[in-house]
C-alpha cells in the first residue's frame, strides 16, 4: 500500500471519547517533538455517537472511521492491520480515554527498540505508582495473572493493560487473528503460545479522563466469564495447532 512516513504507529481506539481525545493526541505530538520520535498517530473511531470524529478530523493525526461498531478488539485489529499493511515496524496501543499518559510512551518505545522483546506491555503494578485501579479489578487482574501462568508458564502482572507495543512479528499474527471483545488477557495467551517474547515495563497510569468504562457492575461477571472462555479456547486451538510449545523465556524486569 502506501509508503510509511514513520516506523512506529500509535493506534488509539476511540468510542465516544470527545472529551479526552484532543488532549491525548496533542500530548503525543508534543512528546514526539520533544524526543524526536518517528511516530504516526492513528485514531480508530469505532462509530462514536458523539463528536469524536469531527474532533479527530481537525487534529494532526491519521484516522480510520469504522462503518459499524466493532468493539475494542475489532477496532484495535483494524489499526494493527493498517500498521502491518503500511509497513510500520512497531504499533503501539494507547487507550483513548487518557488512562495512558503520553509521557510514558518513550519508556515503552525505548524497550521495544532494543529488540529483545516482541511485545512490550506497560504495567501499572510493577512499581505500584499512579492509578492502581479498584480492589475488585485488581482481584480480576490477579486471577488472569494466575490463569496465564498456568497456561503459558509466564507471569504477566498487568494482563489487562492496553498500553502495549507490538513489533512486526507480532503484527503479522494479530493481522490474522485478534480477539473481538475484551482482547487484552486473551491476546497474552495467544502471544505466549506463538512463542513471542513479552516484557513488562513499569508505567504510571491515570484514572480515565472521560468516557465510560466498558466494564462495570453486572458486566464484570460477564467479562470474567467471557475472557476465561476466550483464553481457554484460544489455548486449546493453538495447542492443537502447534503441539507442545517450547518453554518461554522469562523476561520479567
Amino acid at each position: 500500500m502506501t509508503k510509511p512516513r514513520a516506523d512506529i504507529l500509535v493506534v488509539i481506539p476511540c468510542y465516544n471519547e470527545e472529551s479526552s481525545i484532543q488532549n491525548l493526541v496533542n500530548d503525543i505530538q508534543s512528546v514526539k517533538k520533544q524526543h524526536n520520535l518517528p511516530i504516526d498517530i492513528l485514531v480508530v473511531n469505532d462509530c462514536s455517537k458523539d463528536n469524536t470524529l469531527e474532533i479527530v478530523k481537525s487534529l494532526d493525526c491519521l484516522y480510520l472511521d469504522l462503518p459499524v461498531n466493532l468493539g475494542i478488539g475489532g477496532g484495535m485489529q483494524s489499526g494493527y492491520k493498517y500498521a502491518y499493511r503500511n509497513g510500520y515496524k512497531f504499533a503501539v496501543q494507547m487507550d483513548g480515554d487518557g488512562q495512558h499518559p503520553a509521557v510514558e510512551l518513550p519508556k515503552l518505545l525505548q524497550e521495544a527498540l532494543r529488540n529483545d522483546a516482541d511485545i512490550v506491555i506497560g504495567s501499572r503494578f510493577l512499581e505500584g505508582k499512579g492509578f492502581q485501579s479498584s480492589f475488585v479489578r485488581r482481584l480480576g487482574i490477579n486471577y488472569f495473572k494466575w490463569l496465564n501462568r498456568i497456561l503459558i508458564g509466564k507471569t504477566i502482572h498487568d494482563s489487562t493493560s492496553g498500553f502495549r507495543v507490538f513489533n512486526r512479528k507480532t503484527l503479522e499474527i494479530v493481522n490474522q487473528y485478534y480477539p473481538d471483545e475484551y482482547p487484552e488477557p486473551e491476546a497474552i495467551v495467544l502471544f505466549g503460545l506463538n512463542n513471542l517474547k513479552m516484557k513488562e515495563v513499569p508505567v504510571e497510569m491515570c484514572e480515565r479522563q472521560g468516557g465510560v468504562s466498558s466494564i462495570h457492575s453486572f458486566r464484570a461477571v460477564y467479562y470474567m466469564f467471557k475472557v476465561t472462555l476466550g483464553i481457554i479456547f484460544v489455548y486449546i486451538r493453538l495447542k492443537g495447532k502447534y503441539g507442545k510449545c517450547s518453554p518461554i523465556q522469562n523476561s520479567d524486569t
Binding site: 480508530v44 484516522y63 472511521d65 469504522l66 485489529q77
Partner: peptide, 9 residues
C-alpha cells in the same frame, strides 16, 4: 468493515 475503513482513509 476494516476494508471499508481503509478505503475511506
Amino acid at each position: 468493515s476494516h476494508e471499508v475503513a481503509f478505503l475511506k482513509a
